[in-house]
């Protein structure tokens, strides 16, 4: 398969390597070091770094500016873009802005509802949805056109991604929804954090049965637990998250000072098992405010060194 964009992530996946991506959350302030320090910790262990877009609806430094910081460091960014806060004019405008810095990966998302964040009284936008954002980027890239039909000078060249959550219900809808995103034009998927491996494997099998794994690169999402408390929180409080009881039990079963290590162990074991699952083409490691552990996870999972592609 040949690549359609200058994206390094796309090239690595197309070459048949297991890709490794991670993410950095921008700061609640304007100090660029908050981003560059995190990125520096993981740059040699991942192929691209996602920058989240006001995740959990908490106001932060914008994803685009943070991506530019990565770009200036010579790191490949993935611009996360939610449709919660901007209408179709602003979204297309920011896509062009990113393209002007040669940002070559984009992740198209709905975005958490603003009720979760620091401005619950604010108005959401949702002028278009994540499905339509995928179509928009593809239209801009492949046909060189705006949604309004006019021509774009120097169209964006972006490898187009989206999220998938195999664990939200109804479960029966989740594979057809992946198929719909593929029909919309998505090229890579980063999944919700996987803790229920059995369920993920079932989802993946149903996707493979429909041949979807040959139409999209699926990166399995993982997040290490720092503590038993975090496991319980993710289980009970985070929407669309599936943390089986035995995982919480395993975290709670070790003394507090050993829990972080156990969290890393679980993460590494998950990656090792998921490597064997048909259709898994890489990993998206979301070490929330724990970026310093990413290199260890990547190395222990046998995913290091990263392929040298320039």
């Amino acid at each position: 398969m040949s690549t359609k964009t200058p994206s390094k992530l796309e090239e690595i996946l197309t070459a048949g390597h297991l890709a490794v991506t991670s993410e950095c959350g921008p700061p609640r302030g304007s100090d660029p070091e908050d981003i560059t320090k995190k990125a520096e910790m993981i740059r040699n262990h991942v192929d691209a770094i996602n920058i989240t877009d006001n995740q959990t609806s908490v106001t932060r430094l914008c994803s685009l500016a943070a991506c530019v910081h990565l770009k200036m460091m010579g790191i490949e960014p993935t611009l996360q873009m939610v449709v919660r806060d901007r209408n179709r004019i602003a979204l297309q405008s920011d896509i062009l802005g990113a393209a002007s810095f040669d940002i070559h990966n984009i992740l198209c998302l709905s975005g958490d509802h603003q009720q979760f964040g620091d401005c619950p009284k604010g108005q959401n936008v949702f002028d278009i949805d994540s499905m339509q954002l995928i179509q928009t980027v593809r239209l801009m890239r492949d046909e060189g056109k705006f949604l309004g039909g006019d021509e774009i000078k120097r169209p964006p060249q972006m490898f187009v991604g989206a999220a998938a959550n195999p664990f939200a219900d109804p479960f029966e809808i989740r594979v057809p929804r992946l198929a719909k995103k593929i029909a919309a034009g998505v090229e890579f998927i980063q999944t919700q954090c996987i803790y229920n491996l059995d369920k993920f494997e079932l989802w993946m099998k149903l996707a493979c049965d429909r041949g979807l794994h040959e139409k999209v690169y699926i990166l399995a999402g993982v997040t290490p637990f720092k503590s038993a408390g975090m496991a319980k929180y993710m289980k009970n409080r985070v929407p669309g998250m599936d943390v089986p009881d035995e995982v919480v039990k395993r975290m709670s079963g070790v003394p507090k000072e050993k829990q972080a290590e156990e969290g890393i162990n679980i993460c590494v074991e998950s990656i090792q098992r998921l490597k064997e699952v048909e259709g898994v083409r890489g990993f998206h490691i979301m070490a929330i405010e724990w970026e310093e552990k990413v290199p260890e996870i990547v190395e222990r999972s046998g995913l290091y060194p990263r392929p040298d592609i320039s």
Binding site: H113, Q115, F116, N124, D129, A163, D169, P170, I173, A184
Partner: peptide
């Protein structure tokens, strides 16, 4: 739908309820 989505549910559906209010049905479910 709290997000007015027209192409299916977001990833926040939980037991048929909306991610922002467990008293509200997920429209897409």
């Amino acid at each position: 739908c709290h997000k007015g989505l027209v192409n299916g549910p977001c990833g926040g559906t939980s037991n048929g309820k909306c991610e922002i209010d467990s008293e509200k049905d997920c429209a897409w479910t």
